[in-house]
Write a protein that binds this DNA or RNA. Sequence first.
DNA 1: TGTACATCAGTGAACGCGCGTTCACTGATGTAC
DNA 2: TGTACATCAGTGAACGCGCGTTCACTGATGTAC
Lengths: 223, 223
Amino acid sequence: MLETLTLTSITFSEKDWIMKNVKEQTTRKRYHHGDLRSQLIDATRALVEERGPDNFSVSEACRRAGVSTAAPYKHFKDKAEMLREVAVDGMVRQSEQMLAEVAPHPDGSRARIIALGRVYVRFATTEPGVFRLMFTWSGDGEEDENLHALGDSKFEFVQMEVAKCHGRTTIAQEDREKAFMLWSFVHGLSFLSIDGALSDNKMPTDLETVLAEIAKRIVPEAR
Amino acid sequence: MLETLTLTSITFSEKDWIMKNVKEQTTRKRYHHGDLRSQLIDATRALVEERGPDNFSVSEACRRAGVSTAAPYKHFKDKAEMLREVAVDGMVRQSEQMLAEVAPHPDGSRARIIALGRVYVRFATTEPGVFRLMFTWSGDGEEDENLHALGDSKFEFVQMEVAKCHGRTTIAQEDREKAFMLWSFVHGLSFLSIDGALSDNKMPTDLETVLAEIAKRIVPEAR
DNA sequence: TGTACATCAGTGAACGCGCGTTCACTGATGTAC
DNA sequence: TGTACATCAGTGAACGCGCGTTCACTGATGTAC
């Protein structure tokens, strides 16, 4: 399921993959792994969560997948590509969650803004490792275009939501600024949460309340 | 100067240190270094900036200080302690900057809140490595009590400022919540800035404006 | 002022480690005839 | 249906590397007499 999202280019072979997988169930312990690529991605994601993006190691991922340390290089260019795969997948899933959470609420309602913030922070606290990976390209130099593009389109989405709250169908400068304020806020809230900077749960109120409070102070309810 | 802040316990020997240092200027290339400890801290800070907290290495710091790799262990327990030293020093300097920047403005004025935010973000963009080090104890397990205490007292300071804006002399629940909102905001703003998540300077307005805007929306001007 | 000595900040060599990546290889698979 | 062969996903051993930390040591310094 996850693979369908990540590797959109091989979606067409999904049926084949399932068949292969079924076959594997029956003829256990084969030389060819069958689905190593996605299993390595899973291991990478797990490690990123457990040890943080910076302490991820290819070797350990191999150990978890029960495979030699040379195996990944049949599927990925290098270590960075494995991490990028996980980051992009995270971006996509976060976007999907946003769309899903926003859907029930009518256009232009503040509830949609709140929903976006809720997903953002929830994602961060649920998958802090991946979240960090997504938003911290800390001078590694190796920035990923894809990742930036996904981030940008997400930001545009928020801007559009703000515009709708103002009863606009197109984004104005005011919307850009407000969307930016909202984003900064949930971004900071996320990092404060996962870094435990709020020692002993110093967050003075619950997530839902603080999101509502901020939304109220920044965007109006349309019409 | 920096050492005076960091190593408060040895401040009394400041004069000795200066004399030693002067002597060193004259009798160059000595076996005993004279001021290795603070020089190692400087090297650590520089490396944290250049490569990020996670890519810092003791060996490289030694190379920079022109000293064998065993030397640091005469001054620090281990690698973690070197980093902690830099983090705590950063915390202290950030606090000092806050006090200085707030000073010119009258109590209870929104300008003080804005000043706090300005220092916060400016510190992050000026020393992104140290900033990350200060606020990201990413599951290393080795949390530093001192660091937490400094963070907590800073948070309390902000709360007090918010209280004063409401004309109070003691912190109410409302102040806690508002201070938390403000903190989240500048924290997120800082990370967005240093992670370059705002690709091609996507920040839709300048720092001063956005800080003023947020302050206006969260705290009143007293009386 | 000169000498003996304790102190301690430095050296440099060594350790064991885990890492990312490469290489020639091997064995399973799918396909053409 | 059976055989020959190309493909390719895996192996396992090896590489060079930089790391954090330790150890016995050495040489400069400050102090007591």
